[in-house]
């Protein structure tokens, strides 16, 4: 990319804090914490154990829920995608649950699950589960029949065909689902933490609002945004690592 373009793009990013500064300085948006206030609040939080505990809590919740969601959704999606009978028996029930936003489950999970930690993780799990499931199903259905035929003619049994053909060729679709799923995991985690309370960055942000320490709200938002971006990057990295063969294709 030419230098001029780089500069413009950097300027575009820099314009965000500058605009923010001006908006607060000139009093255009009343009540918006100033960048300096947020920066000093950030410093304060930086030395508080509570803050780091919230960061750790939210991160662990997302990662564990996401991994469990992928571990359940991918095999399930492959089976639903390949076996009509299995699909007919399971998919309609899942389709009934899918339109319910995961966060709407929170009262149910608080009542039914033994610990509030599990409730929040279940919500986060649901957020990631359906995008991964749907994409996996689509990926498994999209596998060209000649690939599995080729494998069969080379002597592969049905499990081997699954492992060496259906799964790898569905991978790009699975990864697309994982990227969406990671985003939705964060959305629902934050909502869950705000609603169910207790711990985590969502709670930190919401309690900053209720307790009137407004700059901390923005500290929370920025932290959540950074962690969200990092985890999306992690999924992309993992995806690229897993399908090296695709990069060659696009090169």
């Amino acid at each position: 990319m030419e230098t001029r373009r780089r500069l413009v793009r950097a300027g575009s990013v820099l314009a965000v804090p500058i605009l923010w500064f001006l908006l607060t300085r000139l009093g255009i948006v009343a009540g918006l914490p100033t960048p300096t206030a947020v920066a000093s609040s950030f410093l304060e939080e930086f030395y508080r154990q509570d803050f780091w505990l919230s960061v750790a809590r939210s991160t662990v919740r997302v990662l564990v829920s996401f991994v469990v969601a992928a571990a359940v959704a991918i095999p399930l999606g492959l089976l639903i995608g390949r076996y009509t009978v299995f699909a007919d028996l399971t998919f309609p029930a899942l389709e009934m649950l899918r339109p319910i936003p995961p966060i709407a489950w929170i009262p149910f999970t608080i009542l039914v699950l033994p610990a509030s930690e599990l409730s929040i993780m279940f919500i986060t799990f649901l957020g990631a589960f359906f995008p991964i499931l749907l994409n996996t199903i689509q990926g498994a259905r999209g596998v060209e029949v000649e690939f599995s035929r080729a494998a069969q003619s080379l002597g592969a049994g049905s499990f081997q065909t699954f492992r060496h053909v259906i799964y790898p060729s569905a991978l790009p679709a699975i990864h697309a689902g994982m990227i969406v799923g990671m985003g939705l995991a964060w959305v629902n985690l934050i909502a869950g933490e705000m609603v169910a309370g207790g711990t985590g960055l969502g709670f930190l942000t919401w309690s900053a609002y209720t307790s009137g320490s407004y700059p901390t709200i923005i500290v929370g938002i920025i932290t959540i945004g950074v962690l969200g971006a990092l985890s999306s990057a992690l999924v992309r990295l993992f995806a690229n690592w897993q399908i090296g063969w695709r990069e060659v294709e696009s090169a």
């Binding site: 959305v187 909502a191 919401w206 971006a229």
Partner: peptide
């Protein structure tokens, strides 16, 4: 990257 819900407060 900021989840929309985080904007609520």
């Amino acid at each position: 990257p900021v989840p929309p819900v985080a904007w609520v407060p």
